[in-house]
């Protein structure tokens, strides 16, 4: 892992310090800033969430940068807490998704019948609208934090699995695999030593690019009411609450939390894209 790191990401200035790498550094810095916010979400006390009717419905000001809601709760604290939650949910879901994609696509190496099963499964998931699958799974699990994470994890792997399968298909036909096979190595051994290292860049990129998707879908499904319950500080909850105050002119209820969500998603998306440009220049250019 450290080898790959030093090979592809030379942190000292060198002659191949080009625009792509600068773009990547920008993303990394943005991520670090965001992480500071997210981590601080843990340490911010719940003082801001205390019900305080004196300060209810106040517009953004110095004491309440994002304003307050109808219970006088500070919207900034709620937003940061929500982002923190979204971040962890998204991270966990994307991680499990990437793991599922990796394991299922590696079945291609091991067994033909299992692989055709996997292809069928991919088609099945891609044949359903994403939103409907999410609703179905979280319906089955009865909603809640666990339900959302499982639903997100179970629905984000097919695209990545498809990519990985294509990659494996290519590697499998190379000569060194044939040689290795003739030398009596088992498919399992080959998968571990020859194929897995090839998949790591794709896997990392896929993981990072799945992450913003997962966050967006988490917010959407929570917004619809299938996800996190309303006591939890989640962006989706905040936004669906703000629906009730649309005509009252309290614009800050919806604007800032959504904007922060947008920022987080955009930052991670650009990180993934920039990383892909560097790790996989050919694919990166083609999009």
């Amino acid at each position: 892992m450290t080898e790959i790191g030093t090979k592809y990401l030379p942190l000292k200035r060198s002659e191949n310090w080009n625009r792509r790498k600068r773009a990547l550094m920008t993303s990394v810095i943005a991520i670090i800033l965001l992480m500071v916010l997210v981590v601080s979400g843990f340490f911010i006390g719940t003082d801001g969430l205390a019900v305080n009717f004196d300060a209810s419905n106040s517009a953004p000001s110095l004491t309440h940068p994002f304003g307050t809601d109808w219970l006088g709760r500070d919207m900034f604290v709620r937003t940061v807490k929500g982002l923190t939650l979204s971040f962890w949910v998204g991270l966990l879901a994307a991680f499990i998704s990437a793991l599922i994609a990796l394991l299922l696509s590696l079945l291609l190496v091991l067994n033909k019948t299992l692989d055709s099963l996997v292809t069928g499964l991919i088609d099945l998931f891609l044949g359903l609208p994403h939103m409907v699958t999410l609703i179905l799974i979280s319906f089955m699990l009865g909603g809640g934090l666990k339900g959302v994470i499982i639903a997100l994890a179970l629905t984000h792997w097919p695209r990545l699995a498809r990519l990985l399968r294509a990659e494996i298909m290519q590697i499998k036909n190379t000569e060194y695999i044939t040689v290795s096979r003739n030398m009596g190595k088992s498919w399992f051994w080959i998968a571990r030593h020859h194929i897995l290292p090839h998949l790591i860049p794709q896997l990392i990129i896929g993981f990072i690019l799945t992450f913003p998707h997962a966050i967006l879908h988490e917010a959407s499904i929570t917004f619809l009411g299938f996800g996190l319950s309303s006591e939890q500080p989640a962006i989706g909850v905040i936004l669906s609450e703000s629906m009730g105050y649309l005509s009252s002119g309290m614009w800050w209820l919806a604007l800032f939390p959504g904007l922060m969500l947008l920022l987080m998603v955009a930052v991670f998306d650009s990180l993934g894209r920039n990383l892909r440009n560097i790790l996989d220049p050919f694919k990166g250019q083609k999009g």
Binding site: F223, S242, W251, G258, A266
Partner: peptide, 18 residues
Amino acid sequence: STPAFWFGLLVLMVFAAW
């Protein structure tokens, strides 16, 4: 990377409510 429903909310606020 814009959540569609958030955009919808903003549009509602600006064009419908305001």
